[in-house]
Design a protein around this nucleic acid. Structure first.
Length: 720
DNA sequence: TCGCTTTCC
DNA sequence: TGGGAAAGCGA
């Protein structure tokens, strides 16, 4: 095996005589064919869409290429196209500032969802409704998928390795394709090595001047000169750059997106290269230019050094430049940064990075999140957002073709932020049944209940729901694991299939050990679903999961028919998964609902969805108008009688009291032990620890308007 | 595995 | 700033 980089730190090249042989061996060449990460001929590309979100809007709105445009999210700008940047605009500029500097600019707000919407949509005054809407990046995900498909189409199916690095970036390992092109273009490379010895050097490439077209060529290292004859690594890079130029051309022709690209021998350099010249340019960093290229950078621009680690290094060595760090011996780096980090940094500073291109284009997790300003204070409001998150995520699961591809997430996770404090809870998504909105919503509510039980739920400044741990299904066996339920298939037919984009992929994803003998869950035949599921909390109208998802463009708004049935008050340790199984046996109904469903009254947007202010000590208004309208009374002596347990508690304890019921309901759905309500004038027992600072008596804050019209639906089906 | 942190866009 | 996504770590 040849040493991996025979020339990487080549201090010398004094000979002006043309060597008869290449630096590279036959073996070196052959390593190219199988993407060897240590191949000295490796060709890696990084492709980065220019101001991606902005371009998406330009394409969608069909505006001219020179039209300044920014993408707005609430009061901020999250993407600015290059015409607008010419006016000195950047992110972190306010809308008004942007319009002052560039009167012609289009500030397009991102798509949003609102409660009751069947899908996301673009709304003129979305920015006014931060309190009632959540942004959707779906339009960009969809465009991203299309572009990815075009990129894959542009590459030979058997010789492509594509890693989707983010919504607007991909890495390509072009090694195998380049290898093939080299053999085809230079037949002399195909012959057997002299003496059949693979460590023999290759013949020298022809001396023809390489035509780099419009590529930005990085200057060479000091020890090199353009007059030096090219070797095979230059040829390989040139071929790679032709491929990338073709890919970019096709992306532009098929979808009008421009992108920038970097080519080099590894990911780190390719990535640095794609940002070197923007927009719409590609940069090639040949092996013999690496040193010079890198030495001009601050190392904080290098991947993984842009954050705390970078700061640490700066602090340790009092410099942020690559050049200054180059003389530092590896021992020194190790000593100050630890062995692993030190040696990693040492090689990275020299342009070495052997990380693989991970042939993965499928998603590994999905998240739907919302920051609340001001904070939210009640579980009703939280559940309403959970509803939206679930609809969002479920739609994406379907859209991505998860169901067809027999992939499914294993876990569901809720992140919660209260002030600075951020925590998350995670539970498994039960196997053995199809994933439906109702299942996800139920799990999400359980997670929320866990925070409430912890006692530190309110005021909540951020919620984010995610599913992850995607694992591959058992191919060709729908039955096992219940990857498909009947309703799913029906929905897919309605959808017209959206998942075709993610073809290849390869082994990626879960790989988790399947098939270990999991504890058998008892399946209980049941006709009924506990009344708990009749959304006491979310209240959005239920549908039967099959029909008229499309017809019902408007979701029935919250109802709060809390009739308090089945409220076991005793804290029991019940396995939530067992719970779920026992409740969801009725597979004929995908979205089962409780008997009280038909009596649910539909009101318009409830006060619980009105903007919550941080200052209002957890919300008198909320329950009064909505929650338990038939039973609850808030009397003039500032106490409140709970309809569930008939206890009278101080108004100031109302939230905790309701939270208690909420959490207990989730834990004790099936049990109906004699109610043992929390003692009045005290925090309920399970909340008794960690109950300091419940968010009362907060400083004043303003609320923004809520409500507004329902958006036009997109093509996505959601809850309805 | 879970909960958390870090990094990147 | 806010909404997403991935990966790594320690218990």
């Amino acid at each position: 095996m040849s040493s991996s980089q025979p020339f990487a730190s080549s201090p010398i090249s004094p000979s002006h005589r043309r060597p008869r042989r290449s630096k590279f061996t036959y073996k070196n060449l052959s390593t190219l064919a199988h993407y060897a990460t240590n191949s000295p001929l490796r060709v890696i590309a990084h492709i980065d869409l220019d101001a991606f979100y902005a371009q998406c809007e330009m394409v969608r709105l069909d505006v001219p290429a020179d039209q300044p445009l920014a993408v707005q999210q609430w009061q901020g700008l999250i993407a600015i196209n290059y015409p607008a940047r010419a006016y000195g605009l950047s992110r972190h500029v306010t809308i008004t500032e942007a319009k002052e500097k560039c009167p012609d600019i289009i500030c397009q707000h991102v798509a949003t969802w609102k409660e009751g919407d069947v899908s996301w949509g673009y709304s003129e005054d979305a920015w006014k409704e931060i309190a009632s809407r959540k942004v959707s990046l779906d339009p960009y995900r969809i465009e991203s998928r299309k572009i990815l498909a075009v990129i894959k189409e542009a590459l030979p199916e058997e010789k492509q390795r594509v890693e989707k690095a983010s919504i607007d970036e991909v890495f390509l390992d072009l090694s195998a394709q380049v290898h093939a092109v080299m053999l085809e273009r230079f037949p002399e490379l195909g012959g057997p090595p002299p003496y059949d010895d693979p460590t023999e050097c290759l013949p020298r490439p022809p001396t023809t001047v390489l035509d780099w077209k419009a590529d930005a060529l990085v200057d060479l290292d000091a020890s090199q000169s353009e007059e030096d004859d090219p070797d095979w690594d230059d040829i390989a890079m040139l071929i790679g750059s032709e491929i990338v130029r073709d890919v970019r051309k096709k992306v532009y022709e098929k979808s009008r997106y421009t992108c920038s690209a970097g080519l080099s021998k590894n990911k780190m350099l390719a990535k640095l290269g794609s940002g070197y010249q923007k927009p719409n340019r590609q940069t090639v960093i040949r092996n013999r230019a690496v040193g010079h290229f890198l030495s001009g950078f601050k190392f904080t621009k290098i991947r993984n050094l842009g954050g705390k680690l970078g700061d640490e290094v700066v602090a340790a060595f009092n410099t942020d430049s690559v050049k200054d760090l180059l003389p530092v011996p590896i021992e020194q780096l190790k000593k100050q940064l630890g062995d692993d980090t030190g040696s990693w940094l040492y090689s990275v500073l020299r342009g070495e990075d052997h990380s693989e291109i991970n042939p993965r284009t499928q998603i590994k997790s999905m998240l739907s999140a919302k920051s609340f300003r001001p904070s939210i204070n009640t579980m009703e409001v939280a559940c309403k957002w959970l509803r939206i998150f679930v609809a969002d995520i479920f739609g994406r699961l379907v859209e991505e073709g998860v169901l067809e591809h027999k992939r499914r997430p294993k876990t569901i996770n809720l992140h919660h932020r209260q002030g600075q404090q951020s925590r998350s809870k995670q539970i498994p998504i039960p196997m053995g049944k199809g994933i439906t909105e109702e299942v996800l919503f139920d799990l999400a509510k359980r997670l929320l209940a866990m925070f409430i039980v912890d006692g530190r739920a309110w005021p909540c400044s951020n919620l984010s729901l995610s599913v992850g741990g995607f694992e591959d299904g058992v191919v060709g066996n729908k039955g096992i694991g219940g990857f498909l339920v009947r309703g799913d298939e029906a929905r897919q037919l309605q959808q017209g299939g959206g998942g075709g984009m993610f073809g290849g992929g390869g082994g990626g994803g879960g790989g988790g050990s399947r098939g270990e003998p999991k504890k058998k869950r008892r399946r209980i035949k049941a006709g009924g679903i506990p009344t708990f599921f009749a959304h006491r909390w979310d209240g959005t109208g239920e549908d039967d999961g099959e029909s008229q998802r499309e017809d019902s463009m408007e979701t029935p708004p919250l109802d709060e028919d809390n009739n308090g049935e089945g409220s076991g008050m005793e804290a029991r340790n019940v396995d939530p998964i067992d719970e779920l199984y026992e409740h969801h046996e009725d597979e004929d109904k995908e979205f089962p609902h409780g008997p009280d469903r038909d009596t649910a009254e539909q009101s318009t947007l409830p006060p619980s969805f009105q903007p919550q202010t941080d200052d209002t000590p957890s919300t008198p208004s909320v329950h009064e108008a909505n929650d338990l309208p038939d039973n609850n009374t808030t009397t003039s002596d500032d106490t409140y009688q709970c309809s569930r347990c008939r206890q009278r508690v101080p108004e100031t304890e109302k939230t905790e009291h309701d939270d208690f019921h909420f959490a207990q309901d989730l834990q004790n759905e099936r049990e109906s032990p004699p109610p043992r309500p929390p003692p009045p004038k005290a925090v309920p027992p399970t909340l008794s620890k960690n109950n300091k600072s419940k968010g009362r008596g907060r400083p004043p804050g303003g609320g923004a308007g809520g409500g507004g019209g329902v958006e036009k639906g997109q093509r996505r089906l959601a809850f309805g």
